[in-house]
Amino acid sequence: MMDTSVSFLDSLKDTSDEEAWQRLVGLYSPLIHGWLKRHGAAPGDLDDVCQEVLTVVFRRFPEFRREPRAGAFRTWLRTITVYCVRDHWRKKNRQAKGIGGSDFGEVIAQLEDPESGLSAQWNRDHDRHVLQYLLDEVRPSFTDNTWQAFQRFALDGLSADEVSQELGISVNAVFVAKSRILSRLRHRGQGLIE
């Protein structure tokens, strides 16, 4: 596992860092694949389009600038996905038809519009997926007791007093657990979720 002092996006600056790029593929392949499938892309196109998106991200990453816009990477990835889907169908010289006769081309047009409900859904899906990935990634760095305190307090919504009593630790230890894990998550996910 990579040094925790480096954010996810910063680790990708070195295009020769194979581990960092494998992490990107591991993070974004399921998101892109699942999103396209849920919104009606033809099953035979999913793997090809996903690979095309990640290839473009790799090739063009040196051009990516995350400042000053919040959600810049998420938006950039959405734009690349739209481009790759359209290009994929253009190459196959066919109309974008989805499952059940739905017009997947209309879905892509909505996804391209940053003000559409579908773009807002992309943002929510992206953030939820990335957060779960980051939680899974940082989990091994903390003791079970620290993680349980964080989970019960920050994720499950119990009060610090309830968690303190449940785990037999001080209220201060509950706040410290939350602070330490959130700090790690913020740093690792810097630029991915805003």
Rank of each mutant, 00 (worst) to 15 (best):
M1W: 09
D3E: 14
F8Q: 08
L9Q: 05
E18T: 15
R23Q: 12
G26D: 04
P30N: 06
L31M: 11
I32Q: 09
G34I: 10
G34Y: 07
G34M: 09
G34N: 13
K37G: 06
K37V: 04
K37T: 06
A42S: 06
D47V: 02
C50R: 13
C50S: 14
T55E: 04
V57D: 01
R65D: 03
E67V: 08
R69S: 08
A70G: 03
R74S: 09
W76K: 10
W76G: 11
L77W: 02
T79Y: 04
T81R: 05
V82Q: 14
R86Q: 15
D87T: 13
H88C: 06
R90V: 13
Q95A: 11
I99G: 00
S102T: 02
F104Q: 07
V107L: 04
V107W: 01
A109P: 02
P114D: 15
S116P: 07
L118D: 08
S119F: 04
A120R: 14
Q121S: 15
Q121P: 05
W122N: 10
R124S: 11
R124M: 07
D125V: 15
R128P: 01
L131H: 06
L131R: 13
Q132S: 09
Y133D: 02
D136A: 06
E137G: 03
V138Q: 11
P140L: 12
F142C: 01
T143V: 01
A149H: 04
A154N: 14
L155R: 14
G157H: 11
A160M: 06
D161P: 00
E162I: 10
E162R: 14
Q165A: 14
L167C: 12
I169P: 05
I169V: 15
A173N: 10
V176P: 02
R184S: 15
Q190M: 09
G191H: 02
